[in-house]
Write a protein that binds this DNA or RNA. Structure first.
Lengths: 332, 332
DNA sequence: ATCGTCTGTGTAATCGATTTCAATGAAGAA
DNA sequence: TTCTTCATTGAAATCGATTACACAGACGAT
């Protein structure tokens, strides 16, 4: 049915080996190369990548395993990874785990069957702790969430510092009762919590925190409860874009004014944060750079398999907007 | 190095054919099946999918080609497609074309080399017009943007009706000078423009429209110019989520109050639209359903290749919020 | 007892490419 | 002229699975 390399060879009057060499830029005389390229063009031949991968033992494929592509952080990272991958002649298989360790295990297994060249992975805390890169058969670069030191390559944000930046900004604005909302499934949440606690401890202030599933619904419900409590916070820090959105929805629903009754700050400088309410103060992560760096580290690791594990720590940038200005005027 | 089916067969004391049958749920006695499964488990064997695909001529892979995964519409559709695909035992290759016909051609070619089972594709207008599904070697389901009638399966929104709903809502609110912003690369933009024009024509009103690249930056720049013109519109309709965002940014920057000086409505009920400004009136597309339907149509088409092309038209839902209420009170 | 029928299993061909190895011929050295 | 050397090319092995086909043995019907 479809055209095989054999057919092209016959049409060009050469052997299949020669056609293969034309395809792979092997040593071929100019005259023959012209002839073969003409035959390829005329026949509409398309090499079969499954056959090529089987024989060459190179799949030129990487896996990208994240919790949910709908989280804008991962959306952006994924775009960066894909751009870098296609530039390097590689393909990407995207997997959504929903923070579910069973799905993570299933997809890692799938990656083995695909014989992927490598994997970029944002694991749950549970999987990160037990992940053995040696037994997998391919290198892994962790993103967003690092596991135990020295085991895997990783590119992460300086989460503690980032959380401290946010808290210190709120302190400067005069806030004292500052609450924090952190994801409970990732190491990232734990690190941001640590920075949050540290910054408040320096001033001798309490650090009330809640841990939750990193979703819009969970955040909205938790904040609704919290705002109804007697000693409610005057400021809230949200540990990711979805949680931040939940905070805002809950505040709006409860009729709590931002920033006058509740200052709000969070992570991820998504486009919408500029437009929501008075504009949201956020800690911007270099998302595209995280994706590209992860891909670069993976290629580096493939080139030098023996090299010890490296951890790249990137810094965030504080973007101040209206949601934390206590004396803010209405905009627009 | 890695374990092959042959090794498992030797360990279990059976032929490779028998191991293959255990893997594929072929006819095997219970006793032998137990033995083989034990050997698979003990050896940590993982079947090589490239080899399986080559021999079986089934790749169980579909391509998903969109303009940019960072567009929330495609983010959601992609998640739906992936969920449905993995449920059906298929893998997904994601490609971003940036509305560039050259990239579209390149990725279609790649899909041929991958011998994908099928493709779900949101093409530019240019490619949609010339897309010949027969010559490709795999079925295509178009999403968001349909090509010439009867050529390809497609699942789209009733774009004209949707645009009319938005315009009529604005008319009810008392708006008269209503402007529209439409994407110039897709048929979707053209259809929404048609509905926009029709609704205004019924009232004998003019229908000023601008066509632009469907990006945040292009929209912001265009709206900034438009708002500076003498006879500026009292309402704007934006043909997708990114353009809508651009309208809002431009209005805010120009100090034009929404909704009092400018009513705003757009497409795509993204989570942030509830939180931006006074809440944005939008036309909600059934995004997850679009993705699942596309996947279902693809499977259907694979089951019945001869069937004539079908076009599924889904309806949108108007979600009214503050951005179009002329007498709206400040919220929160 | 004989003959199909049915189950379960093994042998070997096959998918479509890459890659090893050997062969060919032309050019240059002695 | 003869022998190397080098650049091209082809024949055949190979990657790791699935699958067509053959066949052995158990079983029931006659």
């Amino acid at each position: 049915m479809t055209i095989r390399i054999k057919d092209v060879a016959a049409a060009a009057g050469v052997s299949v080996a020669t056609v293969s060499r034309v395809l792979g830029n092997g040593p071929v005389s100019d005259a023959v190369r012209k002839k073969v390229e003409a035959a390829i063009e005329a026949s509409g031949y398309r090499p079969n990548l499954s056959a090529r991968r089987l024989r060459s033992q190179h799949t030129q494929t990487i896996g990208l395993i994240v919790s949910d592509i709908r989280n804008p952080f991962f959306t952006n990272v994924s775009r960066a990874v894909e751009d870098a991958a296609y530039e390097a002649g590689m393909r990407v298989i995207l997997c959504n785990t929903d923070e579910n360790p069973d799905k993570e295990a299933m997809y890692l297994r799938l990656m083995q069957e695909e014989r992927v060249t490598g994997v970029i992975f944002a694991p749950t805390r549970q999987t990160a702790e037990t992940l053995d890169p040696a037994g997998l058969g391919f290198p892994v670069v962790l993103i967003d969430r690092a596991g135990p030191a020295g085991l895997n390559d990783a590119v992460v944000l300086d989460n503690a510092q980032a959380a401290e930046l946010l808290v210190e900004h709120l302190l400067e604005q005069g806030c004292r009762r500052i609450g924090g909302l952190f994801g409970k499934t990732s190491t990232t949440g734990a690190e941001r919590h640590a920075g949050f606690v540290a910054a408040l401890a320096r001033r001798g202030l309490p650090a009330p925190a809640r841990f939750l599933a990193p979703s819009l619904e969970a955040a909205e419900a938790e904040v609704a409860r919290w705002l109804a409590e007697p000693d409610r916070p005057e400021a809230l820090v949200a540990s990711n874009g979805l949680v931040l959105m939940g905070v805002l929805k809950a505040a709006r629903r409860a009729g709590v004014a931002v920033p006058d009754e509740l200052a709000v700050a969070g992570f991820d400088n998504d486009a919408w944060t500029e437009l929501a309410g008075p504009g949201l103060t956020v800690l911007e992560q270099p998302v595209y750079e995280i994706g590209r760096t992860a891909m670069a580290m993976l290629l580096e690791r493939l080139a030098r398999p023996g090299q010890t594990a490296r951890k790249v720590v990137l810094s965030g940038r504080l973007v101040v907007r209206g949601s934390t200005r206590r004396e803010a005027l209405p905009v627009g």
